[in-house]
Nucleic acid binder design. Structure first.
Lengths: 128, 128
DNA sequence: GCAATAGTTCAAAAGTTCTTGAACATTGAA
DNA sequence: TTCAATGTTCAAGAACTTTTGAACTATTGC
């Protein structure tokens, strides 16, 4: 009934560069950021990242990103809506997120089987 | 006599974002980058980073930064002169290094004993 | 209530990173 | 040649990170 699932997020002023860099220095998490960046209008659920790893492993990686202050996770029903903390990151490290995204955008997208997603597949992941 | 110590550096096009982020996602290495950024005119030797860790540990961290393509190391005599690979990083990830440095600049500088260097001490490290 | 959906937590295992000290290598100078 | 200076390599250990599957929680809809 209550829905009070605790999902701690650091305050903007407690987001540190070292934590953000550590969070992003991982292929899976960088790929998650890529998915989010291609989709900044509509929040994504965890399930939409399943091409990048198992449910458990994604839960782990998304927690890392959340704890570092890179993403915000909003529980709604049984789902969690994940968004980039763009405003906070821009305030804290101006220009940083954009250079990451710009690079991530024209990178091939590795998925869990080691092959690479086509643009068509990416569009599908992005809009489903 | 020969002086042919091999110090492999990745080519510019082989510098990857994930490797750079992993290399920078560490307090010691971020502090090294901070020292280098305050000193971009004159190359620094490894010995000038000794407030950040032991000789062995710095050798390890500087190798990480070199292998990721973040710094260039030029042997000269018994010393190694370390510089940021600014041109290459700017070509590969435009704006990235500057946002890192801008953040690093107004960060307190932790040194190995857990205390923080004053600006005077930093200047001393930088120009000795 | 019961089942389905969406995600988390736990403990174990495997792998990676970092620090340490001792031994080594290279260069330059007395 | 011998010494000091500067840094590297090696092996061991401690501490983290990541992945797994099984068990769990919370919510929604029937």
């Amino acid at each position: 009934m209550s829905g009070m699932t605790f999902l701690p997020h650091p305050d903007t002023e407690h987001i540190t560069l070292a934590n953000v860099l550590t969070a992003l220095g991982d292929e899976t998490r960088l790929a998650i950021i890529g998915h989010l960046a291609r989709n900044e209008e509509n929040a994504m659920t965890c399930g939409q990242f399943l091409d990048l790893g198992s449910k458990t492993s994604l839960s782990y990686h998304l927690a890392k990103l959340r704890e570092a202050g890179v993403v915000h996770v909003r529980p709604e029903g049984t789902k969690r809506f994940v968004t980039l903390r763009r405003v906070d990151l821009d305030a804290r490290f101006p220009g940083f997120l954009d250079t990451i995204i710009a690079t991530t955008r024209h990178l091939p997208f590795a998925c869990r089987d080691g092959n690479v997603l086509t643009n068509a597949q990416l569009a599908e992941v992005g809009t489903s």
